[in-house]
Design a binder for these strands. Structure first.
Lengths: 109, 109
DNA sequence: TTAAATTATTCCTTGAAAGGAATATTCCAA
DNA sequence: TTGGAATATTCCTTTCAAGGAATAATTTAA
């Protein structure tokens, strides 16, 4: 697991930005600032960090920037958590294996 | 999602400690320090942070402390990721739903 | 009780990250 | 081309986390 993703998410305002976009869909810097009651400069800065960490995609549209979630970092995080899942849920693991069997998918890992 | 978990994991050495315990099982402060080539004081400090964040359980044994992983924070992180999963894998979501159906489990959430 | 091993704590310094305030930049509309 | 809206950047200050070094505390063994 890489720590850039975690570092980016560890700041409360940035986490809120991520969850906001997750819930409301792509948003503008101004939208984010308004909804989260942040100043515009700090919003830009936080979004920059999120972008540099690859958590977010920035799509210019005229005057504005539309901020979208990227999937890869969350997939990576999810994959990382796989290695812990057996700690707390063997049953689901076995079901997952069974599921893959009946779906005829490869599970050679 | 709470940021204490993320903050604790965002520090590289602490992340290494977590992954080390995940892979090797419960370890002593000294074991961790040796394997990760950390000084003992910093190891103690990092483990303290991990413990205060609830990521780790500390079990005294005579002179030593045995450090174990706790499951809850990882479960919470996993649960948080659920809300993102539909972004990248609708198929698995549908399979999961199907799975719950044939298992006769409650899925009223 | 003393010594040795293991771990915890304290003190200090340094670097980085975050917010505020001001200003710069970019882009469209008129 | 000028004005206004949206966003970016810079500069400054403050706070906080991390490492190093030294030392304290705890536990067992002898």
């Amino acid at each position: 697991m890489n720590t850039t993703t975690l570092t980016a998410l560890a700041e409360p305002n940035r986490l809120h930005i991520i969850e906001l976009i997750r819930d409301r869909g792509p948003l503008t810097i101004g939208d984010i600032a308004n909804r989260l009651e942040l100043n515009q400069p700090q919003t830009s800065k936080h979004v920059r960090v999120l972008h540099e960490a690859g958590l977010v995609e920035v799509q210019p549209a005229a005057n504005r920037r539309i901020i979208k979630l990227r999937t890869e970092p969350f997939q990576e995080l999810d994959h990382w958590l796989e290695s812990f899942r057996s700690m707390w849920d063997d049953r689901l693991d076995r079901l997952d294996e069974y599921l893959r069997d009946i779906q005829g998918l490869d599970h050679s890992d």
